[in-house]
């Protein structure tokens, strides 16, 4: 079972310094997430959900403990290596979409591919395939401000999957959307999990959204607990 883990955290702690005071956000967390899981991470606001997601995604570093993803220790990588690793292995989906406002949907989705050696035509093809997968082909040439929130988030998901990462990290992906658009996003994530075999970790405080996941974890006072219902 442990060998099946895609994500393995051991004794992970995270402190933040706020002035002279140190805030202990996460305490000695152990966590194993199997490949192909769809995990919902719940907990009160400020409990450290985003912090945990960022540590797994390698955009932040733990104060203590080890993080191993697909057999690779990421906590000890250099910034440069970590960047390359992220580009290959992780797709991020943010609550506020975080698209570049000056670029069209297609260019936004293409952005991660600029880091590869793919020729322009191939980049364009893959960007459009990803847009097709999220059902936004006709909006390829629209800028973010010309799209609805739900459409923006679908562009965000297309950008996250365009380089075909194993792991999708979504931080409150439906947090800024109405119920209907939110449901469409959840449908999409579920499909990506079931049909494309993406491992997904989704932070949410909406039980309705969490119900779509295979497992639910609660983070409270720096400790994890498994949902009894799941």
């Amino acid at each position: 079972m442990a060998d099946e883990s895609l994500v393995r955290l051991r004794g992970v702690a995270k402190d933040y310094k706020r002035g002279a005071e140190t805030v202990h956000v996460l305490h000695a967390l152990d966590l194993d997430i199997p490949r192909g899981d769809f995990l919902a991470l719940m907990g009160p606001s400020g409990s450290g959900k985003s912090t945990l997601l960022n540590l797994i995604g390698g955009i932040d570093r733990p104060t203590a403990g080890s993080i191993e993803i697909a057999g690779t220790r990421t906590d000890s990588m250099t910034d440069g290596d970590l960047g390359k690793w992220r580009a290959h292995h992780v797709g991020f989906v943010f609550q506020m979409y975080n698209l570049l406002p000056v670029l069209t949907a297609e260019r936004n989705v293409e952005l991660p591919l600029l880091l590869t050696k793919l020729p322009a035509a191939e980049r364009r093809k893959r960007a459009n395939a990803a847009l097709g997968l999220v059902g936004l082909s006709e909006r390829a040439h629209h800028k973010p401000r010309e799209l609805s929130g739900g459409q923006e988030q679908r562009v965000g998901i297309a950008r996250a999957i365009v380089s075909d990462p194993t792991l999708l990290l979504c931080d409150e992906p439906t947090g800024d959307l109405d119920r209907k658009s939110g449901d469409e996003i959840l449908d999409l994530l579920q499909a990506l999990n079931q049909q494309q075999g993406k491992t997904i970790i989704m932070v949410t405080h909406d039980p309705h959204a969490a119900a779509r996941a295979k497992h639910v974890l609660h983070l409270n006072k720096g400790q994890l607990s498994r949902d009894a219902a799941a």
Partner: peptide
Amino acid sequence: INEIGVMKTLGFSG
């Protein structure tokens, strides 16, 4: 600054 953070998240180096 926020967009720069996004680009770095995507793997762009500093």
